[in-house]
Design a protein around this nucleic acid. Structure first.
Lengths: 225, 225
DNA sequence: TATAAAATATGATATATATCATATAAATGA
DNA sequence: TCATTTATATGATATATATCATATTTTATA
């Protein structure tokens, strides 16, 4: 069992408020797990009795819409926590979490977290702020979905992906989503997404080669949003 | 200055966790205000140094989209609190609040609320649960906007309005939204909204008379969603 | 009450997007 | 390495929705 004290990732989440003693307790009760690309961490409707801390990798949070399509609500990456909302609401999770790449994930049981909640004010404030940030983002995404065109949403999403996950040495987006996944982030049909990418390519806004997407004209992409 | 102790509305919000002593303190520092229909309570980007408690009436929370249209993110009614997210995040509000009917609203300064936060665990837990509920709703609305047709969203919204705000003696929806507002809740053009209402009317799903909307075939409306 | 302004309604048309079909390319696995 | 599956791409077409125009009704106001 590795020590949480030495885990750098903790510095990026609400857990940074924990003191040495609390971190020792945490290390004792947490369980670590490797999650392969494509593997499910938890599924909509499940009871998850605790939270997950992402040590490495990226996953998607999806929600099944009544028409049977999955919609990607959020991407979550190294340093972030999963399952906080569900734990606080004492409800099943409302989203599924699926690994987009191989991941290292730690699970912290609810009892432990609730203890920190009671005793460490800074920790609970951090959690609250995170959830408030999520709410603000969700509201703004809701408005995007309702009011922007698919083209605008695609441009915005490409910019977001580069901003958040960076680029490879060749300049292409570091995070690898299938066209299908990209479509279910922006809320459109896969073919429409592919077609628009193709249009963007022809316009010189992006470059497509062998599945890799490279943003070529960022000012122009920004202007579209 | 009326006493918060005797205000029934408080029982419906996070404030129900406050004890007598805290309620007396609250009554001393709060300010009350009448808000006329159409009046703005606060505007996107503003710094609101506290939270509002709605004693009576309903307001809409809107967000301006880049195309210049307002989108209604949420309706908030008697018993609910406004501005919690912004206060916790220590950020300007991300939404505007506009009265849909005449309202009675109390303002509670941030300092007071933060005091309750520190000392009353049940209160902060209540606030957290409310925000978690908002986040869940927002995620689900986001998916609705992205994946459902305008027709489905209209049906769903009509059912929601009746569920949440009830109906008049004549059976029509109690809450009075303009077509324009209804359109900006479901994320469509005003004309499209009017047209679909007209279609629903012809199909016997609803009845339109003199601005009043009456749901006539709820099972069928539910089936559409 | 008369008049202006705003809200609702509906038609005609344009546009964005989804769907269905099929081709090609890439990835996977025996 | 070849065969099979899966992902990407593109055309043709259908459909949903937006936009523009105009009429009618309702509401506000002088």
């Amino acid at each position: 069992m590795s020590k949480c004290e030495q885990c750098i990732v903790r510095e990026f989440s609400s857990l940074k408020a924990l003191n040495k003693e609390e971190l020792v307790k945490l290390a004792e009760c947490k369980t670590s797990r490797l999650v392969k690309k494509g593997e499910v961490i938890f599924e909509e409707g499940e009871n998850v009795n605790g939270i997950f801390c992402i040590k490495d990798g990226v996953c998607k949070l999806t929600k099944l819409s009544p028409n049977g399509k999955d919609h990607i609500v959020k991407l979550v990456t190294k340093g972030e926590l999963l399952g906080q909302r569900s734990m606080i609401s004492e409800e099943p999770v409302n989203l599924s979490a699926v690994a987009l790449e191989d991941m290292q994930v730690c699970f912290i049981p609810k009892s432990e977290i609730m203890g920190f909640f009671d005793k460490n004010n800074q920790f609970s404030m951090n959690v609250m702020r995170t959830i408030c940030g999520d709410l603000k983002d969700a509201d703004s995404q809701m408005v995007n979905m309702a009011q922007k065109t698919v083209k605008q949403r695609l441009a915005e999403t490409l910019l977001y992906l580069q901003d958040t996950f960076g680029k490879n040495e060749d300049g292409s987006l570091k995070i690898q989503l299938t066209r299908d996944e990209l479509a279910s982030m922006i809320g459109t049909a896969t073919e429409s997404c592919i077609r628009l990418l193709s249009d963007f390519n022809k316009l010189g806004l992006i470059e497509l080669k062998a599945k890799k997407i490279t943003l070529k004209n960022i000012p122009q992409l920004k202007k579209m949003v």
